[in-house]
């Protein structure tokens, strides 16, 4: 009839308890903790790698045609995110970054949505030649070769 941990239990009554009184003392998340997403729209080039790589598919993109280019908004719905940070790793421009902010307890769903929009100006296209010019170029090309 041995009583395990008896000495340890009695000793620990007189020691300081090892509880971190969290709400009073704010606790920093450890280095490299994958928390809330920070999205930098200016760095993004709308390559779509993050969408393809995201397992739960919680990244959605809406493209809107406007006169100076496409207005693209990226929505990171963190309610469906598994915080695996693959999107951050695959983003060629490093536009997505998972911060150490772990305070994700929300009462309404909107707070979990991180979104950012940017206007993507297309590169200046060479001037568009009318249809016959294209024909002539092909004929000269053909004549040159004979």
């Amino acid at each position: 009839m041995k009583f395990p941990y008896l000495k340890e239990a009695i000793k620990s009554v007189f020691k300081k308890p090892s509880t971190e009184i969290y709400p009073k003392v704010n606790k920093e998340a450890p280095e490299g903790y994958r928390g809330k997403i920070n999205y930098y729209p200016e760095k993004c080039v709308n390559c779509g790698m993050c969408i393809r790589v995201c397992a739960p598919g919680c990244i959605t993109r809406t493209i809107e045609k406007t006169e100076e280019g496409d207005k693209i908004t990226f929505n990171f719905y963190q309610g469906q995110c598994t915080f695996c940070s693959l999107c951050a790793d695959f983003c060629p421009r490093g536009a997505i970054e998972l911060t150490k902010n772990y305070h994700l307890a929300v009462t309404d769903e909107k707070d979990l949505l991180v979104s950012g929009t940017f206007i993507k100006k297309l590169p200046p296209k060479p001037p568009v030649q009318p249809q016959q010019q294209v024909q002539n170029q092909q004929n000269q090309g053909a004549a040159k070769t004979e």
Binding site: I10, S12, V13, K15, P17, T19, I21
Partner: peptide, 11 residues
């Protein structure tokens, strides 16, 4: 409380 303190909790 005592049980908590024995488990090094505040209780």
């Amino acid at each position: 409380k005592i049980v908590a303190r024995m488990q090094k909790r505040i209780g």
